[in-house]
Write a protein that binds this DNA or RNA. Structure first.
Length: 540
RNA sequence: CGGGAAGUAGUUCAGUCCGGUGGAAUACCUGCUUUGGGAGCAGGGGGUCGCAGGUUCGAAUCCUGUCUUCCCGACCA
């Protein structure tokens, strides 16, 4: 049986703030054979607290979502954000999951200073070339009362002899330290990571995507051989890819950066690239093979088994709070945030629907044991017994915040022994017998996690295509998505493409993409031979 | 850092052209009625109009400077 219903919103005397109506499909299916009716009801409802739709203005949608879902907000300091508790809880889960994986790779955490002597940044010429322009500089170490009586001023007598740089990344301070830690091959490898903040004086900032200060982890390793270092850089890339796909539910392309996009000071930069819903690319993590560049700059040598001095080989790798941006732009919709269960601070919210305290008490007799059972299954549960807002408000609010599963139970359910189960990713809901519901929820969460990934993968697959003509490329690339093209391997060609189209080579894929054969060809711009197709896109 | 727009109540915005005791919606507080998709009615509180100067008898409004945010560009290791 399949019944179509239409939901009529409660009459509103109040004028809707806007006429944005969300269209939902409505269907109700019941099957006589099952113990309970299976309902799939999705409704048409007025969206009172308007979130700009993605189609209308993607950028605005993102900005509003970050604030309305309570993830982060602007601070009093230009370009610096406040990460709010709900957003930080997601970041903590990201940290926890990554940290566990790092430790499986033998990594230990450590901490290095925030401030770096200016002279350190002059040591590795190429490295400095890359980012010296956007650093914050500490010049004084004391304040004094303003002689004119208004607040405090910098004490002109407290100028630092050597200015200090707020770390934009820690390679230099770490390698100056590693020099003291390393004398023999027996000291190697060193596998350290630090969770910290860094600062880059960005001109244009956006919450999570590009802020002046941001949180990240940076791993820095030292090895005796080139092979071991190269292998380690690759291995950490695999760790990132595994994490992105299994925890964040974001499909990524593992690849190598072209010379133009390579980290300054690295011999090779690996990356994972993700596609956002607007078709733009976002680099979700990088891992660098640094060769002996930093070892030479900071004179870090070790005595080998053969009693010979050799420079050590290095890697560094990192992901940042930018991942929060990737998470939002991969899964969320016009109703708000959508979180894969693995990262959701609350995986299941339970909303009792009641009028009087007695009603609530009766409902809680069923709901408390259910919440306990879910918690025993290691599911993060919140029971919202507050009578401060209506059930409808709670529904909309938890949707905005991306809670994967919502359970609602009212008087009717209590009589029937049922509970309403709504899932955020598909916006569907069904009424099920409460008997055995915990098992069902556990499976449902796993299903939602899979579905988030599959949906994102399907979207990416739809928006990857090959392109062999540069003329065609110029128009196609503006439509968004990834274009697989032949390229002659020269920085000049890439530079020309970037100038003319704003598109860059996101990566040279390590593995053939699903559905695409690896093949040689001719560069779409110059016609010179190309060993394989590379990924072009407009990037964040 | 260049070009554009904007900063007025917690939020979204009107008021600024044409100077004369600062508004709406929503949010908030109280009470009653409500509660299965963003509740209703009644009452109430809340703003140095971003900041600093200047013009004026008088400035949210005019002028100068400055800070912040958003959009476009440059930059983004």
């Amino acid at each position: 049986m399949s019944v179509w219903l239409s939901y009529t919103p409660r009459p509103q005397t109040r004028k809707p703030r806007n006429d944005l109506l969300n269209e939902y499909t409505i269907s109700l299916t019941g099957s006589g054979g099952q113990a309970a009716s299976f309902c799939q009801i999705i409704c048409t409802m007025a969206n009172f607290q308007k979130l700009t739709s993605r189609q209308e203005d993607y950028s605005k949608w993102y900005n509003e979502l970050v604030v309305k879902a309570d993830l982060a907000e602007q601070s009093a300091v230009r370009g610096c954000m406040v990460i709010k508790p709900y957003g930080y809880a997601i970041w903590e889960t990201i940290q926890h999951e990554l940290d566990r994986r790092f430790k499986e790779q033998g990594v230990q955490n450590a901490y290095f200073p925030l401030l770096i002597p200016k002279s350190f940044l002059s040591r590795e010429a190429e490295h400095v070339e890359g980012f010296a322009k956007e650093c914050a500089v500490v010049t004084h170490h004391r304040l004094m009362n303003d002689p004119n009586g208004k607040g405090v001023v910098v004490d002109p007598n407290a100028r630092l002899e050597e200015e200090l740089i707020v770390r934009p990344t820690s390679e230099t301070i770490i390698w100056s330290t590693y020099k003291n830690w390393i004398s023999s091959y027996r000291d190697l490898p060193i596998l350290c990571n630090q969770w910290c903040n860094v600062m880059r004086w960005e001109m244009r900032t956006r919450l999570f995507l590009r802020t002046a200060e941001f949180l990240w982890q940076e791993g820095h390793t030292a090895h005796a051989t080139k092979e071991e270092a190269e292998d380690y850089a690759r291995r950490m890339l695999d760790v990132y890819a595994d994490f992105a796909e299994n925890i964040m539910a974001i499909p990524v392309i593992k690849g190598v950066k072209s010379a133009n996009e390579r980290f300054a000071g690295a011999l090779n930069t690996y990356c994972i690239e993700a596609m956002m819903q607007d078709g733009k690319a976002l680099q979700a993590g990088t891992s660098h093979f640094l060769g002996q560049n930093f070892a030479k700059s900071f004179d870090v040598q070790f005595l080998s088994k053969e009693n010979k001095y050799e420079y050590v080989w290095a890697t560094s790798w990192g992901v940042s709070t930018r991942l929060m941006g990737a998470l939002i732009m991969t899964h969320s919709d016009d109703n708000g945030l959508v979180l894969p269960p693995a990262l959701a601070p609350v995986e299941v919210v339970i909303v009792p629907i009641f009028k009087k305290a007695e009603d609530l008490a009766a409902l809680m007799e069923k709901l408390d044991p259910l919440a306990d059972e879910l918690r025993r299954r290691n599911i993060r549960v919140k029971v919202d017994t507050s009578d401060q807002s209506s059930p409808g408000f709670k529904f909309a609010n938890y949707e905005l915040k991306g809670v994967p599963v919502r359970l609602a139970m009212g008087g009717r359910d209590l009589e029937n022994g049922t509970i309403e189960v709504a899932r955020r990713d598909t916006l569907t809901k069904e009424t099920l017998p409460i008997e055995g519901i915990a098992e069902h929820i556990e499976q449902l969460l796993a299903d939602i996690q899979r579905n988030c990934y599959q949906k994102a993968l399907a979207f990416r697959t739809e928006h990857i295509r090959t392109c062999d003509s540069y003329e065609e490329f110029k128009t196609e690339i503006q439509k968004g998505g990834f274009l697989l093209c032949h390229w002659d391997g020269t920085p000049e060609t890439e530079e020309r493409i970037k100038e003319e189209t704003k598109a860059t080579i996101r990566c040279i894929p390590l593995d053939p993409l699903p559905g695409f054969q690896e093949e040689t060809g001719k560069c779409m711009v110059t016609g010179k031979p190309s060993p394989r197709r590379v990924v072009f896109a407009i990037a964040y």
